[in-house]
Design a protein around this nucleic acid. Sequence first.
DNA 1: CACGAAACTAACCACGTGGTAGGTTTTACC
DNA 2: GGTAAAACCTACCACGTGGTTAGTTTCGTG
Lengths: 230, 230
Amino acid sequence: MSDQTQAPAVRPSKGERTRARILASAAELFAASGFHAVSLRDIAAHVGLTHAGLLHHFPGKESLLIEVLSHRDREDAKVLFRVDPEDSPQEFLRLIVGVVHRNMRTPGLVSLYAKISTEAVDPAHPAHTYFVRRYALLRGQLTAAFTALAARTDPRPDYDPELTAQMLLAVMDGLQTQWLLAPATVDMHAAVVAFCARIGLDFSDAPPLPDHRSDPEPSPTSIMSAEAET
Amino acid sequence: MSDQTQAPAVRPSKGERTRARILASAAELFAASGFHAVSLRDIAAHVGLTHAGLLHHFPGKESLLIEVLSHRDREDAKVLFRVDPEDSPQEFLRLIVGVVHRNMRTPGLVSLYAKISTEAVDPAHPAHTYFVRRYALLRGQLTAAFTALAARTDPRPDYDPELTAQMLLAVMDGLQTQWLLAPATVDMHAAVVAFCARIGLDFSDAPPLPDHRSDPEPSPTSIMSAEAET
DNA sequence: CACGAAACTAACCACGTGGTAGGTTTTACC
DNA sequence: GGTAAAACCTACCACGTGGTTAGTTTCGTG
């Protein structure tokens, strides 16, 4: 059971290590410039491979994008879905706000979702289905949290849980673009906390979430992972 | 001074008419798929020209994009800037909400700004400077409106005008992407009105703005037009 | 160390892209 | 109607793109 006996058994193969580097580079470059403006050769050069080498690991550009997104979702799921929004709505919302605070330390991650989600509005985009589902899921979770919270609040608050869920998601998304365009002017976290204050939630002391320091193996039961059908 | 003496003198030339069709097609296609995923040949075919014919009217793809954006700004400016945010803050905010309501009838226009603004986060993007300025201007105007509104409200409201401006812009922007991805589920207008209710503004009866039915000549004093320096 | 599989490269392919240049057609004006 | 300019087209250019194929190098295991 010592670390020595475990480390050699789980050492990633050369291919797995290269795949991880490809995913990291693709995430970074897609985040910077979007899917269409980044070529396979760009990503491959960033990794230190040829584009044909990259295509040995991933069957094509579109499946690479889906894998980048799914990979990041599994990371988020570990944080967000350890709390049930109906059982602990306040804690769930606190985690959501914590995600915003953490995101301010990872502009690349913010940019990835901001950039690709708007591209994915186009039904022909490889990640279109992925984002339709992702937003539906998040709205559902947040609506459940606000509904549960309202049921526990006396006097009962006068907000519509579904509209409020849409608003909170919108504030978070909308602030990303503004922040990316003017990071010195726009304070994402303060604005989200201020929004929550508007609906009666005090998260002014919400602690930050842990950084993305490690990328452990993907969880086999990924809730947020959308397997693309393309 | 009769209409008959004016109409022949101001009839657009063939070139002007073609330019207008190019701008409309470019706006539509950029809105659908973004700058990078649309080629000049796509736009030209949509107009019914060759791409070389298109390039007779616009010196290049990048300047075409800037012109599309500036053109739409002049249209918005006519609506938004007929009211001074400091003199009539409530009326100004009412117009902002009216813009959202109107936008629900023009998915293409919504998509254009949503799509290109996130692309433009990339400093190498042709519209980067344009959007940095646009957001700064809008934040300034909204901050001025909320500041003036707070000064006229007794007891003084407890919101920070600058954060609130960021939040309102964020809600409007963030709702666009959600709406474009799930138009049957997300009600942009209701969510924005609900947000305003959260800060003490009742716009539940805000009237819609006029449609984009006509495209009159550009105003010579366009406030929101950002002349690109590229 | 040997060997098969994985990882990776070089070269190729067909196609698409923004832009250029010269020629043809259309427009606008006198 | 004549003419010059504007509008538009055809053909070309160099380059970039995602993907394929065959060969070479590296890895992992016995």
